[in-house]
Design a protein around this nucleic acid. Structure first.
Lengths: 227, 227
DNA sequence: ACCTGAACACCGTTCAAGT
DNA sequence: ACCTGAACACCGTTCAAGT
């Protein structure tokens, strides 16, 4: 019969044994409470009630930590397709969901832009995109490059009008607007005629949807060299 | 008649007066000698023989410093067009030059990806791209969004197979390859059939050229909503 | 106005020493 | 094998005080 756990150990749950899963769970917690800007080895160690050195037994670097975190977040996406609904519509909704996920936390898209995701959910996402492009008639080798281009674009768009909009991450939209307002009518007639607002602005959903259509159409219009 | 400068002041040139231009010049020096990863306020202050606090009189933040640096580097590009040569060819060569510039220094493209350039040369680049897209027949509003998409893509491509290839920046290509090799034939049949090499590899120039053509074709094939 | 020493509040990563 | 205290070598930014 087990002896009763001493009160001091029951009051707060015992420090959980460290492992990769526990660390990534804690990382999600820090992301949600503090933002990715504070998702550091030291902050995470504090959360887990240990020292930063302990994390290096399970995670190679801060970059790997971010890659694992992003993969973990992908698990919340719907990565299925019934194979019958319109492939193009499904591809758009998938990329939209992915972008929304990255925009939900300020700075997350910026991080995703320079970090290659790493984990099972990322593979599922890529596989689904390959299926959808194949369903549309893309030859496999072209679909392979197409996935890369589409993901890169979705991530970049999320970074551009997601997190940085009203953030504490350094620059904001006002800076970009101000930069365009330095355009000179003599030297930059087209830019001046369009106006800063036209360059930067636009309804987010429209702009994003247009970008996706550009790339999807382009993929189907452009054979790979030697294809 | 001026008194002779004391020997101790002549041995090494006098500390230059600080100003924006001097700071950006020094930043280029640090970029070339140490890489952008070490282009910090502290390292730059050391180069200028002062303390970091002094730089804040001229530069608002490290992000602004990087934005100014990137604009400065753009000055080395050929941003002219005679208006007669093939617009599409010129657009491709412009984007290629821009990508090469970012790939010349490891980590630079990563930084450009999350930093909006700021300065006169960036405006010249945008103006030229607007001219080229207009020459191809794009309506102005579509050209505006097209410039954004093209620059974002060129930067992302530079980041993807530029700097990180053989770098000390955290992840490298081998990690990405390894991630794809975890694909399971049951769960990821298309991915498995293609193979990691097909997803990640390919001759850099071909891949980049294909990506540009995809986007350029897509821009001309896709009207803006309500256009 | 411009400049700066010093401080505040952080970082990533390594490694010898412990259990 | 797993864990960690402590250290090393850095960061960005602010601010009171000087010139």
């Amino acid at each position: 019969m087990p002896r009763p756990v001493p009160r001091s150990r029951r009051e707060r749950p015992a420090k959980p044994a460290l492992n990769r899963a526990v660390i990534i769970d804690a990382a999600v917690g820090v992301l949600e409470s503090d933002g990715i800007g504070r998702l550091t080895m030291r902050r995470l160690a504090e959360e887990l009630d240990t020292g930063p050195a302990s994390l290096y037994v399970y995670v190679r670097s801060t970059t790997e930590l971010h890659a694992l975190l992003i993969d973990r977040l992908l698990a919340t996406l719907d990565l299925t397709w019934d194979g019958r609904s319109d492939w193009r519509h499904r591809l758009r909704s998938l990329l939209t969901d992915y972008g929304d996920l990255l925009m939900a936390n300020p700075g997350l898209a910026d991080s995703a832009l320079v970090t290659w995701p790493q984990g099972p959910n990322y593979l599922d996402l890529v596989e689904l995109m390959l299926r959808l492009l194949s369903a549309g008639g893309a030859p496999p080798a072209r679909a392979a490059w197409g996935v890369d281009v589409l993901l890169q674009q979705a991530t970049a768009m999320a970074a551009e009008y997601g997190g940085r909009g009203r953030s504490a991450e350094g620059q904001d939209v006002a800076d970009l607007l101000a930069a365009f307002e330095d355009a000179s009518p003599q030297r930059h007639p087209l830019l001046t005629a369009l106006g800063a607002q036209e360059m930067v602005g636009g309804e987010r959903g429209e702009r994003r949807g247009w970008g996706m259509d550009v790339t999807i159409s382009g993929i189907f219009a452009t054979p790979r060299p030697g294809e």
